[in-house]
Nucleic acid binder design. Sequence first.
DNA 1: TTGACAGGTTCCAATATAGAACTTAGATTC
DNA 2: GAATCTAAGTTCTATATTGGAACCTGTCAA
Lengths: 168, 168
Amino acid sequence: MKWDDVGSQACSVARTMAVIGDRWTMLVLRNAFMGTRRFDHFQLQLSVTRHVLADRLKRLVDAGVFRKEAYQPNRYEYRLTEMGLGLYPVLLAITGWGDTWLDEGRGAPLIFQHKGCGQTMTPKMVCSECGESVTARDVIPMAGPGLQASRSAGSANPPAEKRASDAS
Amino acid sequence: MKWDDVGSQACSVARTMAVIGDRWTMLVLRNAFMGTRRFDHFQLQLSVTRHVLADRLKRLVDAGVFRKEAYQPNRYEYRLTEMGLGLYPVLLAITGWGDTWLDEGRGAPLIFQHKGCGQTMTPKMVCSECGESVTARDVIPMAGPGLQASRSAGSANPPAEKRASDAS
DNA sequence: TTGACAGGTTCCAATATAGAACTTAGATTC
DNA sequence: GAATCTAAGTTCTATATTGGAACCTGTCAA
């Protein structure tokens, strides 16, 4: 199977990876969440080639993660949409895992202060219903409506965007 | 910058992506969390080429995410280590985003029952200290011990977290 | 002892990436 | 009002990675 067909599966992981599963994309998003908005700033900060960066930004705009907005004629900013901001838990989870398992004994490169309570926080994944921490051993995955629908429809479709208006 | 150098940055996102940031890797992990353990099963379920699958499994074993264990002479299973199990929040966050933004109006392909409370849950990222939901707007990233250590050690420079000054 | 099976390797063509140079249009400086 | 600068890309070439298929190599089962 080619990578471009992965997103057509009835699986939220596959569909999400089709959008952000590329090697550089999460690093672009990391910097976007840190406030970066312009092509050259991304390019300098990431040291990714301009070619690849242009491609990734375009894909993310097409997917609805970024909004491309002119701040002058012919000059653009890439700003996270609500859909893009929704990726923050993914970034936090990734950061949390890196902090736990890949810190080389030096502690976290970044720490996070929670505005709400003022404390230094670590991200924690909990059950929406009871608020308890969730690990792989605590959940039972079961077929949901999207799976049955796609089975009976029997086909794969292009993403129908609910387009987000702006953010931040 | 070449991709292979990404993991040497003092950034937990970069380090984590160096391990799992590849196109197929999260799909391998998805299936591993669903119970898949053997080479041919991964290959059939994912439709990834054997060559790429072999490479990804090897990398994940080297990184400590999988343990390779003989269940017969010359036949192996790939089982998640504790480090690997620690990636479950990442998978949940990815699933949650896909369910919210990419469901094509059909609802989630999979739903999750929480053993603890018996309810159908959605994953929720909260502050470890106060338990409140966390979004991008609720946290202030600050330099942590791992960043200072790597700066004084003079290793690969982390991207400057400069705030883009903006228009509008 | 013959064949199937699991777990890979090897081969080649197609695609993607890294690095650098080039383009373009409006803004700034002289 | 021409020359320069700047941001945001494109284009180019060499190298690396993928996709697809065939091949190899030990066990196991009949």
